[in-house]
Design a protein around this nucleic acid. Structure first.
Length: 511
RNA sequence: GGCCCAUUCGUCUAUCGGUUAGGACGCAAGAUUUUCAUUCUUGAAAGAGCAGUUCGACUCUGCUAUGGGCUGCCA
């Protein structure tokens, strides 16, 4: 079978896309690129009740930020447009009717309230109500009612749904690319709703199968929560006569809460202090906000790298992967079967690793945006250089300002501990002398300054730490930062002198 | 409750019948260092349990336990 690889990511716009969804999209994308296939984005907005305005744009922006490119679908178009299911409504009714005509489905007229009562009754007896072969001929369906009555009810405007007629006591044998062979007896299944007249929209099951078929999808890669409906989907392909082009399925392990105990959910982020969404989100209805990886200071590449390794591994000890490297290494065979707990600490570690590996040029734009946000105007070169000096201490971009601000702004207050430790004894006098030394240096490069200063320290009989830490107090204002000669070179001779004067002027030495 | 899926260090994972069960995060100790970091070295840390198959099981089978998913006119 040499079918073109075509995969789809098919989210439903009921809110922001969470990181489990991002990972599903990522695996689809990696698989498509690895196999020279196409990546489709389909929006499954068949639930008119839960539709959230803005969610679709959020999904598209998230994928874009992550570097997951869409070849075909909402936002880009393609040969099977439209790709939004709400714009394909007339297609589904036709297929639902085809199933009824072929005896694979039937009309059901139960109201939601009636079904609710049936479920409650069953529950009271300690049983679970199932709409299946045992009840479908006793309830108001086209299997129990006369053809005439069915027609009349529909003509009268009564609400109806189309249900799939699950065959009795049959074994459905399925193959999953990740889980292997799975068999289920149809008698444990129930007659799922395929189409509802209330909003003239199909449910997931119908729309999904019809669209995957029409869009010539070759591989369905989705979350494990869909595994229980796989038999239904197999049966639907058979009922439509599409067995020969049925896509291959791969059910991904779930992303679990860091503490274990369930699927990762929206609330976990707030509770445990990490984002569960790629981007910041504000609910248009409640105004409630949720943090995002982008706004929290994560790099898209690191975020993707971290996500890729949650449930998949290359079988080597490599951990840092560019998108292209992920594409080259990815295979569904190496996706693990068990759910993976999400680990916020590891996400941070990946982000720090990416910062460490960046060049000054790569850091420049990030640094610039941080500096501009604080009203600093400087060249890209300078911005990049500052960040490059400090990159080994950066975990999140949101920390960058605190790390590099002293390059651009003189300290306006001094760390108390450091003052106590250094601003005493002979140090104030030593620093004044030191200033004169700096002013006398012609070549203020890092290397030259260092050799001149070290010679001076030796000549005067000071200790290196004593001088450097006192200087640090003057130039940085705190016991942190890079080597002092990085600082002197960066801020320049005049600024060094100014900052030393400022310390001498504004802080009275102890003792 | 029913159906389905899963189960190696605290966490993410390697191992596709024969290994001193490897790596990473985190943790601890040490080294380096002008501060803070970084980096490096070292350490503690695992095959859920019970049967079976086999010369030999982490690896195969069964049962049990535990975890998870589904059980909507939601996806």
């Amino acid at each position: 079978m040499n079918r073109e690889v075509r995969v789809r990511f098919a989210p439903s716009p009921t809110g922001p896309l969470h990181i489990g969804g991002v990972r599903t999209a990522l695996y689809n994308y990696l698989f498509a690129r690895r196999n020279n296939g196409k990546m489709i984005l389909r929006i499954e907005d068949t639930d008119s009740q839960r539709f959230v305005p803005g969610a679709e744009d959020y999904i598209i922006e998230s994928l874009k930020w992550c570097g997951i490119e869409i070849d075909e679908g909402v936002g880009v178009g393609g040969p099977h447009a439209p790709y939004r299911q709400s714009e394909r409504r007339e297609i589904y009714l036709k297929y639902a009717k085809q199933l009824i005509d072929a005896g694979w489905a039937y009309y059901a007229f139960d109201t939601p309230e009636e079904l609710d009562t049936l479920r409650k009754e069953a529950e009271a007896e300690g049983k679970t109500f199932a709409y299946n072969f045992e009840v479908r001929e006793k309830l108001p369906t086209s299997l129990s009612l006369s053809a005439q009555e069915v027609e009349e009810r529909i003509a009268r405007g009564e609400q109806w749904v189309v249900r799939f007629k699950i065959p009795k006591d049959e074994v459905v044998a399925m193959d999953d690319l990740i889980r292997g062979h799975v068999e289920v007896n149809t008698s444990t299944l129930d007659d799922k709703v395929l189409y509802k007249s209330v909003d003239a929209l199909p449910t997931y099951h119908l729309a999904n199968i019809v669209d995957d078929h029409l869009m010539e999808v070759s591989h369905v890669i989705r979350g494990e929560e869909w595994l229980p409906s796989l038999p239904l989907h197999y049966l639907l392909y058979r009922a439509f006569g599409w067995d020969d082009t049925r896509p291959q399925f791969a059910h991904l392990p779930l992303l679990l809460k860091p503490t274990g105990g369930g699927k990762l959910s929206k609330r976990d982020g707030d509770k445990m202090g990490f984002p569960v969404f790629p981007l910041f989100w504000q609910s248009p209805t409640t105004g409630e906000t949720s943090r995002g990886y982008r706004e929290d200071g994560y790099l898209a590449e690191a975020f993707i790298n971290m996500l890729a390794l949650l449930g998949w591994n290359p079988g080597t000890e490599q951990e840092i992967f560019s998108m292209q490297e992920l594409i080259d290494a990815f295979s569904l065979e190496r996706v693990s079967k068990a759910g993976a707990r999400f680990q916020p600490d590891k996400a941070k570690w990946f982000n720090a690793q990416y910062f460490h590996r960046m060049t000054a040029e790569e850091l420049a734009p990030i640094s610039q945006s941080v500096l501009r946000a604080h009203g600093i105007e400087c060249s890209d070169e300078l911005a990049g250089r500052a960040a490059n000096i400090m990159k080994e201490r950066v975990t999140l971009t949101t920390e960058l300002w605190d790390l590099i601000s002293f390059f651009f702004v003189a300290p306006n207050e001094y760390d108390e501990k450091l003052v106590k430790k250094q601003w005493k004894g002979e140090n104030p006098k030593m620093l004044a002398e030191f200033k004169e030394l700096l002013l006398s240096i012609e070549d203020f490069s890092k290397e030259n300054t260092e050799s001149v200063v070290k010679a001076w320290i030796e000549e005067k009989g000071f200790s290196l730490g004593q001088v450097m830490n006192t200087l640090r107090l003057a130039l940085v204002g705190a016991g942190k930062g890079p080597g002092m000669f990085d600082v002197t070179e960066f801020i320049g001779k005049e600024e060094c002198a100014k900052r030393i004067d400022n310390l001498i002027k504004s802080v009275t030495p102890l003792e």
